[in-house]
Design a protein around this nucleic acid. Structure first.
Lengths: 245, 245
DNA sequence: GTGCCTTTGTGAAGCGATGCACAAAGTCAG
DNA sequence: CTGACTTTGTGCATCGCTTCACAAAGGCAC
């Protein structure tokens, strides 16, 4: 008989909590740099911009790492959160699509220091293939599958035009990838078990515009009628920086 | 006595709904391009990657724009959502910080076609000031306030290193800006009435790493002990592309 | 005009996240 | 060792969003 050891950190951390852990980690790193040894939930919450009760509840999902009357040991908590997020190991990342955005991503220094390593750059344009960016040579997208397998890539960043995104997505999934960060302005269709996160500048701006309009005028123009001469410009999809070069 | 006319579109659209409207808009534009005249909530929901009941409830917050038994008129719905999001007017956007990311953003073609117009590029580095990017000359950050006022900038994109972000934020708010899109990896402190939206590559990757780890091994290594030789690398904050040049 | 068929708009239940408030647990001074 | 003080961890009420399920509304064929 196998006795089940009831772990403090029972499986199933809420998504909302997971999304905030990187925030806490960043705040903790800032504190560590300034030499702070321990921090209360209240202070850490302020630094991370959240409610202190929420922070404590979030951390309680990882385990009981605080000391009552004192707070949390900064270094220890950094380690525990890093471990929970999987940052104590190395993740090989491939970037597909080397337009303006792909280049910016490839040059992103924050990658390396966080357990993420750019293991490949890919593009379908022969004019770009062979170019050297951030120490890597851009490879042709044909080799995607074999390189993913060979170099153990587990996270793929899609920075292609919208038209190519789904195909790239399908191919990398077929090659075994189950984590995708998508910058192309399309809704990717993926099988169960594959995680897709989306970053979309256009959507963020539109959300801001909505609120800005509310603040400025108390809402959009009243009345539901069509004004004359309305022309709705269609959105041709290319992510950040691919469109206008 | 002023009779209150009960508008179908009563103030207060849920945030979750607002965040999805751009998605619907994109799907509708795709349909319009293919010449589709009307669409059912079911079909549109599939195209946008959401549940059809959710879509109907979202749209019902804008008004009663569907026809039972038929669906929604594509063009009409495009117009209504655009109006609600404030895309029927022109928004002047300033980009502060012209590193790799700032350049990619400036070159982003999707801006113009959606009612967003880049009205200024700013940087504190004299080596960058004067450079011509996407048809605009980079201006020195000293002129931020006056340019914001003069050109009626209402949305500011912060793409500076983390260390400069809060100062830029304070200054543009003082100049009257109330909508900010922040790419710097810091929690910005702003007064009430100011909207900040955050885009953070590093956080997205960390969330993916968390799920990837779960899928791969059933969780982080068991046990809570500190392994020997743990070195936690601190995160020096620079957004996308500023760090490594 | 009548009746069938499709699809919307929404009441209501369900679910997860938030934030308050406090008991439990630990520190520290004397 | 004792007692005052600090701060965590969490039960609980609440809130907002999601999803189901269906009555109401409109189109269309005959």
């Amino acid at each position: 008989m196998t006795r089940r050891i009831p772990q403090a950190r029972e499986r199933g951390i809420p998504d909302a909590t997971v999304a905030r852990l990187p925030l806490y980690l960043r705040a903790l790193n800032g504190l560590a740099e300034r030499g702070t040894a321990t921090v209360s939930s209240e202070d850490l919450a302020v630094a991370a911009g959240v409610n202190s009760a929420k922070l404590r509840k979030d951390l309680s999902h990882l385990g009981s790492y605080g000391t009552r009357g004192v707070g949390y040991d900064v270094q220890y908590l950094i380690y525990q959160i890093s471990r929970e997020l999987g940052l104590t190991q190395d993740w090989a990342v491939a970037i597909v699509g080397v337009g303006n955005l792909g280049r910016a991503l490839a040059n992103y220094g924050g990658f390396v220091s966080r357990g993420f390593r750019v293991a490949g750059l890919f593009d379908a344009d022969p004019g770009v293939v062979g170019e050297r960016i951030a120490g890597l040579v851009v490879e042709h997208a044909d080799g995607l599958e074999s390189v993913i397998r060979k170099r153990g890539v587990s996270i793929v960043v899609i920075a292609t035009p919208a038209t190519a995104a789904q195909e790239v997505c399908d191919r990398v999934i077929a090659a075994g990838v189950t984590s995708i960060l998508n910058f192309a302005p399309v809704v990717l269709t993926v099988p169960d078990g594959v995680d897709v996160r989306k970053v979309d500048l256009s959507i963020e701006l539109q959300i801001l515009a909505f609120h800005e309009q509310r603040k400025a005028s108390g809402g959009p123009m009243m009345g539901d009628e069509w004004p004359d001469g309305v022309v709705v410009v269609s959105e041709r999809g290319a992510p950040l920086g691919e469109a206008s070069q």
